[in-house]
Amino acid sequence: MPAYELALLLRAMPKQELKSTLKRVSHAIFNRGGIIRNIENLGFRAMPYKTSAHGLVHREANYFVFKIDTATQAVADLKEEYSRDVDIIRQRVFKVQNDCDHSCTLEEEMLPPAYREEVQKMIEVGKTQVNRFTYKFKYNSGLDYYPFQK
């Protein structure tokens, strides 16, 4: 099962209601055979922009991040269910990407253009193509007339 991150914005509500909402959200995951690895509460704060959801305009929200493992097919299902939930203002699902080790290429990028690999490749490509600026029409091309305007 792939790992997903579920970023949820819940509407402003008292603690008891929030608790029941979180329970509802997590039960939806469990019912589809998923597991929750971690729940992060990023706090209650003003949103950077107002959002309207389910006929109401929201300016503040409770920010939560669920780290879940679930089947890929269940994700669309979950999204559909959460979209009907009036307590959820916004929900986004992201796949957790594993850290890839790569070395910094800043040194190569700071070289003068002629020494950069991508520029050298571009020059190679340019050599294989007809240069429109220096191309000259040859009269012995089989045509008995000059095809362009003089």
Binding site: P48, R90, R92, L106
Partner: peptide, 30 residues
């Protein structure tokens, strides 16, 4: 920014994600 290509692409992708999740504003800085 003076970042390498890889990190700059990552930063840009993550900023777009954060803006879409309403963590970060689009048209100004917090």
């Amino acid at each position: 920014t003076g970042l390498c290509k890889n990190k700059q692409a990552l930063v840009e992708a993550e900023i777009k994600k954060a803006q879409n999740c309403a963590y970060m504003p689009y048209y100004y800085k917090d």
